[in-house]
C-alpha cells in the first residue's frame, strides 16, 4: 500500500447542461496521509464541494466524473460499483454537510439517525447501538444524551445539530471525513467551538479530514496542508504554515490579504481581488485567473500554466509566481 491514505489524480467532473458542458472539477490532484487535515480552499464556484462529492461518487446526472483516479487505501473508488461504494460511504469515508438545518431528516429522531449509521456499518446489537449512540453524543458535547436520543432535529439549535451530524459522521469510525463548509451556516461564536471539536475528535478517532471552506483563517488554524482551488483546478498546494506565510500564487495572496484583521493599521481599505469568478461556461483561454491577476502577462492570457514544484513540498500552477513567496501582508501567524 502506498504512503497515502488518499490520492486524487486528474479528477474531472463535468455537468452536461443545455447551455454546454461545465467542467466543475478540471484535473484536480492532491494527496492525503492518514490522520492528516487538508484544507480545500477557494471562492464559491471553485469546485470544492463538487470535488468532495466526487470522492464519494455522489454526483448525479447531468453531472458525471469524466476522468481521473481516486485511490483510497490502494483501490480506485471510481471503478467501484454503486453497491461497493455504499459500503464505503459512511464506514470508510463519511461526510459533514454545510447546513445542519437541512442535513438531518426532520422526521426521524436523532437516535434513529445515529443508529442507522451503526446498523449499516457495524455488527452491534440494537441495545449496543443505543449505548454507542449515547457515547457518541456525549463525545460531541450534547448534554444529557440519554434524554435527547428520542428528540427530533427541530428540537436542537444549529450548533447542536451540527454536533449531531459530526456524531453521525464519526459513528462508524471512518478513515476519512469530508467536511463541506461545516461552520458556514453557524453563528460566529459557535463556529470556533465546532472547529475545535472536530479537530479534537479526528485526532482522537485517528481519521483524516478534508476541510472544504472559503475561509483561509479557519484553514490556517487547523489544517496541516492546504490546496487552493480556482475554477475547478488546484492552483497551489503546500504545508499550511508556509503557504499562509509565503503564498506563491497571486490568487492565494489575494485571498490572504482579503481577510480582515483587528491588529495593525486600520485606516487602510481592506484589499480585495478585483472582478469575479468567471462563468464556468465561458472560461478565458490561458490561466483562468489571468483577468483578475495583477501579475498577468501575455503568456498567462494565452497558455494555461501547469503544476510545478517551486520549493520542497510546495507546488503552484502559475507562470509568474509571486517572487520567492512574497510575504502576505500581516499574515506571519
Amino acid at each position: 500500500m502506498s504512503e497515502y491514505l488518499l490520492e486524487v489524480r486528474n479528477l474531472q467532473t463535468r455537468f452536461e447542461l443545455f447551455r454546454g458542458t461545465v467542467k466543475a472539477v478540471d484535473g484536480v490532484d492532491f494527496t492525503l496521509r492518514e490522520g492528516e487535515i487538508l484544507g480545500l480552499v477557494g471562492e464559491s464556484g471553485g469546485g470544492k464541494s463538487v470535488t468532495g462529492f466526487s470522492l464519494l461518487g455522489l454526483i448525479d446526472p447531468p453531472g458525471r466524473i469524466a476522468a481521473g483516479e481516486v485511490i483510497f487505501r490502494g483501490e480506485n473508488l471510481l471503478e467501484k460499483s454503486e453497491e461497493e461504494m455504499r459500503r464505503i460511504r459512511g464506514k470508510e469515508i463519511s461526510m459533514i454537510f454545510q447546513d445542519p438545518m437541512t442535513s438531518l431528516n426532520p422526521l426521524h429522531s436523532i437516535g434513529r439517525q445515529i443508529g442507522e449509521m451503526l446498523a449499516l456499518h457495524t455488527p452491534l446489537s440494537p441495545a449496543d447501538r443505543r449505548k454507542r449512540s449515547i457515547e457518541l453524543l456525549r463525545e460531541v458535547g450534547i448534554p444529557n444524551p440519554e434524554d435527547r436520543l428520542e428528540n427530533y432535529p427541530h428540537q436542537f439549535s444549529g450548533g447542536m445539530r451540527q454536533r449531531v451530524v459530526i456524531a453521525i459522521a464519526l459513528a462508524a469510525n471512518p478513515k476519512l471525513i469530508i467536511a463541506d463548509e461545516p461552520t458556514t451556516a453557524l453563528d460566529v461564536t459557535v463556529q470556533a467551538q465546532i472547529l475545535a471539536l472536530m479537530e479534537n475528535l479526528v485526532k482522537r478517532f485517528g481519521s483524516a479530514l478534508i476541510l472544504i471552506t472559503h475561509d483561509l483563517a479557519v484553514v490556517s488554524e487547523m489544517t496541516h496542508r492546504v490546496a487552493v482551488m480556482y475554477c475547478g483546478r488546484v492552483v497551489e498546494e503546500g504545508p499550511t504554515r508556509e503557504l499562509v506565510r509565503h503564498p506563491f500564487h497571486p490568487y492565494t495572496k489575494g485571498l490572504l490579504e482579503s481577510i480582515p484583521r483587528l491588529s495593525g493599521e486600520r485606516s487602510r481599505r481592506l484589499p480585495q481581488i478585483p472582478g469575479m469568478v468567471p462563468s464556468l461556461f465561458d472560461l478565458p483561454p490561458g490561466c483562468s485567473f489571468a483577468p483578475r491577476c495583477g501579475y498577468a502577462t501575455d503568456l498567462c492570457r494565452k497558455e494555461a500554466p501547469s503544476m510545478r514544484s517551486v520549493a520542497p513540498g510546495r507546488t503552484v500552477s502559475c507562470h509568474n509566481p509571486v517572487q520567492g513567496g512574497e510575504e502576505a501582508e500581516g499574515h506571519g501567524r
Binding site: 455504499r86 464506514k91 461526510m95 442507522e116
Partner: peptide, 14 residues
Amino acid sequence: RQDFIRFARAKGVS
C-alpha cells in the same frame, strides 16, 4: 432534492 437525502446517501443508505 433535499439535503438530508444526500446526507443519507453519504451514510451509505440503500
